[in-house]
Amino acid sequence: MKALLGSLKETRSKDKAALYLLYRAVDELGFEKIARASTSKEAWDILAKVYKGADKVKQVRLQTLRGELESMKMNQSEWVSDYITRVQTMVNQLNQNRETLTVVRVVEKILRSLTDSFENVVCAI
């Protein structure tokens, strides 16, 4: 019986330590969400639900950015340097969301979407 009580106390102590570490690891908003949790498991489950939604939002954001990049085309009145800057801005936004694009893919995108007046240049490249 003593061994069982000792084990229970040790488990509770470890749980309180884990809960304390979770409190310390989150920002103020995260803390407000888990402040009433009585166990580390309860706090962890709350955080998992909160950040699962953030992952879905991030996935939607990435899909939107990918779609915008693929649909980009150079305007007839636009300078090539301005168009490349627009594409690079979009690529940077994707990179900030942890979507890495190779330089080859970016160059291919630019060459595919230049205006018809650059067709000879694209073919030569």
Rank of each mutant, 00 (worst) to 15 (best):
E119A: 13
K14W: 02
K73Q: 14
D27W: 08
T11N: 11
A25I: 06
W44A: 06
Q63F: 06
K16N: 08
Q88I: 01
Y20L: 13
K33W: 00
T89K: 13
L19Q: 03
R61S: 09
I46P: 00
N97E: 15
V50E: 12
A43T: 01
V26P: 08
Q96F: 14
K58M: 10
L8I: 12
K14N: 09
L114P: 10
N97G: 15
Q93G: 04
F31D: 05
M90A: 12
S38D: 03
V50L: 06
T102D: 15
G6A: 08
L5K: 15
L101W: 12
D45V: 02
K56Y: 03
S71W: 02
V91W: 12
K73W: 02
T39S: 10
M72H: 06
L62T: 09
S38N: 05
V26E: 05
I46W: 00
D15Q: 01
V122D: 03
V80G: 01
K14V: 05
S13C: 02
A17H: 09
S71M: 15
R112Y: 11
E68Y: 08
K33A: 10
A43M: 00
N75H: 13
R105C: 04
F31S: 07
R112C: 13
Q59W: 03
W44P: 00
K41T: 07
A17F: 09
L5C: 08
A37G: 00
A37V: 01
G53E: 05
K9V: 06
W79Q: 07
G30T: 06
E42S: 02
A54D: 06
S117G: 07
R66C: 04
R61N: 10
L5H: 12
Y23V: 02
V122S: 05
T115Q: 09
S71L: 13
T11Y: 11
A35R: 10
V121L: 10
A48V: 04
Y51S: 02
R112T: 07
R98C: 15
K2E: 13
V50R: 01
L29Q: 15
E119Y: 03
S40P: 03
T115S: 14
W79P: 01
T39D: 02
V50Q: 07
S71E: 12
N92M: 09
K52H: 09
D55V: 04
Y83K: 01
G67M: 12
E99N: 12
L101V: 06
E70T: 09
L69A: 04
L29T: 13
G30E: 09
L94K: 11
L47R: 02
E99I: 10
N97R: 15
S117R: 11
L114F: 12
S7G: 04
R112A: 11
C123D: 06
L22E: 07
N92E: 14
E99T: 14
G67L: 10
L114G: 05
I125F: 09
E68D: 15
N75Y: 08
T85E: 09
G67D: 11
V122T: 08
V122P: 00
E28C: 07
Q76G: 08
L69E: 04
A17E: 14
D116F: 09
Q76S: 11
K109Q: 11
V57G: 10
V104S: 11
E32K: 12
E10W: 03
L21Q: 13
N120P: 04
A124W: 03
F31L: 15
A43L: 00
L22K: 08
L47T: 02
I46A: 01
L5M: 13
D82S: 05
F31T: 04
